[in-house]
Design a protein around this nucleic acid. Sequence first.
DNA 1: TATTGATCATAT
DNA 2: ATATGATCAATA
Length: 236
Amino acid sequence: MKRLTGVALGATLIPPESEAELLARAARLTGQRLEDIAAAMQSPVPLDLRRAKGFAGQLFERALGATASSRAVPDFERLGIELKSLPVDRRGHPCESTFVCTISLREVGEVEWEQSRAFAKLRRVLWIPVEGERSIPPADRRVGTPLLWSPSAAEEAQLRADWDQLGTLIFAGRIEEITGHVGKYLQVRPKGKNASARRRYWDEDGAVTSTMPRGFYLRASFTARVLSAHFVLPYS
DNA sequence: TATTGATCATAT
DNA sequence: ATATGATCAATA
């Protein structure tokens, strides 16, 4: 098994300076178990993900030299590339939806798709598939083949249509009508500490009101399409 | 059993 | 507070 010496030394990694460099780093993760990567970084692996839901994504960020931390910009800011771990089943099909970004209620209606945070993160994505079945302990989950991706014209058009539809509903003050059923590829779901979390904003009448924090997510049916022409798992 | 709504941890 | 990293778990 190839080791990660030179990639992950435990110290802060210098950010990749090009797409090629980033892809080369990501390629070295392929076939590794999460435990192998974590060990190279001298970092522990949780026994389950119930209290470490972001473990794989954060491990990949550190292993590849991501720079964004928790700021609302793509992970590799200079390259304009967003990093997404993608849990897949044994057939390479996504297990879960993919979080894109939180929803800024004041930004809705003020910017176009091209200026949106959603587009900034989706225009170029490094997908890193990883075994995601709950029966596999996190330590043993293996990394698949990374894919550096941009939406096709048709995909982007549908993402924009969803974003427009959802944004129009929010701007019209109908946010409470939005459920996870709305949107073909992009949906809106809660994204908060819990169901009691509130986000304050000024409604269209200028009155202060509040609602649950929400985020944009990509449906698993969309990420399945993204991976459809891609050889995900380098093992059987 | 696929999907929606709820939830957990960390950074700034 | 609100952004990031997501997966869990109840529901349809």
